[in-house]
Amino acid sequence: MEAAAEPGTIAYYLDLLRIGDQGWGDELLAGLLLTLQLALCSVALGLVFGLAGAAAKVSSAWPLRALGGAYTTTIRGIPELLTLFLIYYGLQYAIQALFGLFGGSGPVAVNGFAAGVVALSLVFGAYATEVFRGAILAVPRGQMEAARALGMARSVAVRRILVPQMWRFALPGLGNLWLVLIKDTSLVSVIAFSELMRQTDVARRVTKEPFFFFAVACLGYLAITGISTLVLGWAERRAGRGVRRA
């Protein structure tokens, strides 16, 4: 084994980030990958919640509107960390109770990834509901009326006329929510799921170099949010390519 570099030197810090048994590079990258997986699964499920929520909120049936309103107001009114705990322990109790019905017993442990995805997508969905609702309202009413007058079924008109156009209005809002979501994934570390923040925490416990490792973690998040901003800018330009600019 080669001589370890003197603490405090650049070589020492580079050694700390090495891939393999000696360094923490591979652990941090694995954490970053899980962070991305968590965010991607949450955004997929969150978009479904958001679309359903928006459909409920612009619906003509008042019970649906009330339900959509209750969903967005409660989720947006409580801390994300608390939502995560509510889902994490709530799922455990729910599943335990369900097992109890069938005569099962004993403690149930909920997978951190599953609880994280459910909580994060509920939060994403609540805010996305408002974004989609605004986007639906931004498409001129005459468009839908014209489609209906041409004899399109409601479902066809929604698919062909409403959705392609509302996407352009929704993209900037959704982009912001995605950036918020990336940052919120760090919260899942508190229920011991080994995404980037958790792996960083393990590394700082072992190495006693908290400042360095948390700074590295911050760079990891900045890399994701930075790249996302570029991609979102491209997507917005693409979605707006049929629109005349003044």
């Binding site: 994934t185 760090s186 923040m197 948390f214 911050c218 930075g226």
Partner: peptide, 11 residues
């Protein structure tokens, strides 16, 4: 604005 509040707090 680009990093999580949790990471900043730990830092």
């Amino acid at each position: 604005r680009g990093t999580p509040l949790l990471a900043q707090t730990f830092l």
